[in-house]
Design a protein around this nucleic acid. Structure first.
Length: 547
RNA sequence: GCCCCGGUAGCUCAGCAGGAUAGAGCAACUGCCUCCUAAGCAGUAGGUCACCCGUUCGAAUCGGGUCCGGGGUACCA
């Protein structure tokens, strides 16, 4: 019985008791008790019922307790604490059984088969190839990859997808900027176009082109070579950066596809038939006012060029048609206002959209020397993700982004990041893992067997029991991250688990003269290692055996 | 103007399906390595949980308002 089913069991028992007492029933809320005096799990049910039943919460709690029949195999005691909480204490037998389950299940502990036979698509990063990835993109990259990991953990077949557009104004500007730098390397003085790309990488690309074509493109500012070479080089650069973070995509989808296969035209004509698209002032509009917006939005500009919204609809239609059971989109907060239009449009085209989940994350604001810098790829006022990885390492980058709630703004202070790389919270977690590896190695050397049938009743110290209780909670955590797709839940859990381990380590020596105790503790410690490793794996952080 | 996020220790942030003494890391200070790794542990100090009002037995958490920061509201993505 995992912790989750244990809670369900408690809930049901309480509900049954309430019925027996002819009391009103309601959702029973159970939470991990904050301090040991309050047991292991607590419920406020008596407090919430007090008003309706018109009794004192303490009396109510007492009555519930008296009539509650819990199996001593699971729950050894129920206590009441003011102002009326019911506290439940795990039976030692239950705790031991869970530890044994963990040791027997190993790497699969905390996994479910919720996603068995189902496939999911996760779209993220999706930056156009106009420049290197910035620290800002890093947040989304790490988030998307970790969300994918979470789904995979629960047995989903996950496809990571990157959507991009190599047509359009920005890419045209990119090509023009490269041409200017190319001419400069030929000794010609030129100025960048309005809003052109100022980064040094443009010069590198220009030099690269020069090495191949020399001055033969001098008179050909419109040559596709500039844009195409830039795109190719930049994409390679982006991929290599992502690779450093352990992120690999299963597919890259080009927006162009939906122009070429006429998906866009079909979307337009179908929207027209539904009276949701119309012509005005030479543009084609989407009737977003029908979806509750204060004004309609343009789908095709007067120039004949679609806005990004139209191919977005076609792209999502394509995603749906590919038959995924779950579609996750990860967007920055700048998309907050646009994706509902896409969803609404799809619904109007008679698609089911309840399997589309959109995760919006807030931006990273960058601080350098205490001053806020607005990040712009065009103006080259950004710190590249690559530089950041170089400075602090991939593990730190990943953890830095994952320990925060995606809804929170993130103030990224470069100076602090560098300083913290010396003494970083991520090492705290990894160190716990490395310490255990070393203990297990040592235990093996002195001949302590690793045995699931060890006598775990010997584990009685508070630091031991607290550690096991935290391990018991792991399946609940993996359930929570699946429901919420919020990686920081697991970061917080890891932090707590590592703390309890380090405490245990200082208080209890694992390998001693006492063989039986040593075997039991080796078991405990390897259970901790399994859960640490699983958690780190989900976060995509390495699990060093030595540090 | 309107919409969406956020405002918690000096700094970066957890906690927020209402709960019992508000946490961590960094920074500061004090202890602890003849013993499986001190990237650790124990402790001190640091808070009107932006502000006001409300709901409640109980509010950092829920509702309303104010202020500050970010994003959106574009025929930019």
């Amino acid at each position: 019985m995992t912790i989750t089913t244990f809670k369900d069991y408690l809930r049901n028992q309480i509900l049954t008791t309430l019925e027996e007492l002819s009391m009103p029933t309601r959702d029973v809320h159970l939470e991990k008790s904050k301090i040991p005096e309050y047991g292991d799990l607590s419920s406020n049910i008596a407090l919430t019922l007090a008003k309706e039943v018109k009794g004192s919460p303490l009396d109510l709690a007492e009555r519930i307790k008296e009539n509650l029949h819990l199996s001593p195999d699971y729950c050894s005691a129920v206590t009441i604490s003011p102002p009326g909480f019911l506290n439940f204490i795990y039976s030692p037998k239950y705790i031991r059984k869970q530890l044994i389950t963990l040791l027997k299940t190993g790497d699969s502990y905390g996994k479910t088969d919720v996603g068995k036979g189902k496939c999911a698509l996760v779209e993220f990063v999706s930056a156009n190839p106009t420049g290197p990835l910035t620290v800002g993109h890093g947040r989304q990259a790490v988030l998307g990859d970790t969300v994918s990991n979470i789904l995979e953990w629960h047995d989903y077949d996950v496809a990571r997808e990157y959507y991009f557009n190599d047509a359009g104004r920005q890419m045209r500007l990119l090509g023009e900027s490269v041409y200017v730098r190319y001419m400069e390397s030929l000794g010609e003085k030129m100025t960048l176009p309005e809003g052109g790309y100022q980064g040094n990488y443009i010069r590198d690309i220009a030099n690269h082109i020069y090495k191949i074509h020399h001055d033969t493109l001098k008179e050909q500012p419109d040559s596709p070579v500039f844009k195409e070479t830039a795109e190719k080089i930049i994409f390679e650069d982006i991929k290599s950066t992502l690779e450093k973070l352990g992120i690999y995509f299963d597919g890259f989808v080009n927006e162009k596809t939906f122009y070429e296969n006429q998906a866009i035209d079909q979307v337009i004509s179908r929207l027209r038939r539904k009276n949701l698209a119309y012509n005005l002032d030479g543009a084609v509009w989407l009737k977003t006012t029908d979806f509750g917006k204060s004004q309609d939005t343009v789908l095709i500009k007067r120039t004949g060029e679609p806005t990004y919204r139209l191919p977005d609809i076609a792209y999502h239609e394509d995603k749906i048609k590919r038959g995924f059971d779950l579609i996750v989109d990860i967007f920055g907060s700048d998309h907050k206002d646009t994706y509902p239009d896409v969803i609404s449009a799809l619904q109007c085209l008679n698609y089911r959209t309840d399997h589309i989940q959109v995760l919006i994350h807030q931006f990273v604001t960058l601080k350098q020397k205490g001053v806020k810098v607005s990040m712009s790829t065009r103006k080259a006022t950004f710190v590249t993700l690559d530089d950041l990885i170089e400075i602090v390492g991939a593990d730190v980058v990943r953890y830095f982004f994952l320990m925060r709630n995606m809804k929170s703004h993130l103030n990224f202070d470069m100076d602090l990041a560098m300083k913290e790389s010396e003494e970083n919270p991520v090492y705290y977690l990894q160190y716990a893992h490395a310490r255990i590896c070393n203990i297990l190695k040592y235990g093996k050397e002195v001949g302590i067997p690793s045995d699931v049938t060890a006598d775990f009743t010997l584990l009685k110290e508070p630091s031991e029991l607290n550690l096991i209780k935290e391990l018991i909670y792991f399946p609940e955590i993996t359930k929570q991250i699946l429901d919420s797709l919020e990686p920081q839940i697991i970061s917080n859990y890891l932090q707590d688990l590592a703390t309890l381990f380090h405490k245990f380590y200082t208080e209890c020596r694992v390998v001693t003269e006492d063989i039986s105790l040593s075997v039991a503790r080796i078991g405990l410690v390897s259970g901790v290692k399994t859960v640490l490793a699983s958690s780190l794996e989900i976060l995509g952080i390495s699990r060093p055996e030595r540090m």
